[in-house]
Design a binder for these strands. Structure first.
Lengths: 111, 111
DNA sequence: AAGTGATATATCATAAACGGATATAAAGGA
DNA sequence: TCCTTTATATCCGTTTATGATATATCACTT
């Protein structure tokens, strides 16, 4: 049973890291992955990365995995992490849907 | 020309407040609106609310609007705020799409 | 008329999150 | 040999979030 807090809502960097680790990756590869996937829009630096890795390990949402390369540390999202990520995808979907409806309703005020 | 910083990515409370103010509301009504729309899942307290209102005013994403009730202060999202919100909706949509694809791809690993 | 709960705005002070800069070191190429 | 990239890690200042508290008005009950 993991000890960490519940992490009700995931912040953007936490979200991206969990997504990156759906397939096993080491830290540096996470940074590259996020930068590539967002076309350079979103960058995660080492400070943010390793801080969050620690937190996610503690929360049991990711776990370490053996790696042949000795100077690498590879991680992967756990089952709990996948579940949490799915929850968060739904939460964010609802936010997008709400905003979309509100924005579209605004256009036709007088009905 | 507003002075504030660009606010590249919007945090959750900022997002909700901008959505709430697509239709003119006063501070307290924003709190109620967000709590209702999220079925009590997401709550914005006064500290968060008024801190962000100040920042959004400064950034020109919302503006004050006259209100008949003297003890109320009503705000509304500006054109710039609407534009920013639309940007953010797209950004969040892309995040949701990425995660959805990654999660679904994971299921069928061996093709 | 007094009391109570909801309405309404605002700040304080702390906590949590982020992120640039820096450090260290090994690997690969010119 | 030197430089860039890979790779992990922490320091520490800035930003952001938020519970608690304060103040005041309004609506309703007793």
């Amino acid at each position: 049973m993991p000890k960490g807090k519940s992490l009700d809502e995931l912040t953007d960097p936490v979200f991206y890291i969990l997504v990156a680790l759906v397939e096993a990756r080491h830290g540096y590869a996470i940074m590259q992955y996020v930068e590539e996937e967002t076309e350079g829009t979103f960058k995660i630096g080492p400070a943010t990365l390793y801080t969050i890795i620690k937190k996610l390990l503690d929360a049991g949402l990711i776990e370490a995995e053996p790696d042949s390369e000795p100077r690498r540390k590879t991680y992967v999202t756990t089952a709990a992490g996948i579940a949490k990520l799915k929850e968060e995808v739904e939460r964010r979907s609802r936010m997008v849907d709400l905003a979309t409806i509100v924005l579209q309703t605004k256009g036709r005020k007088g009905q």
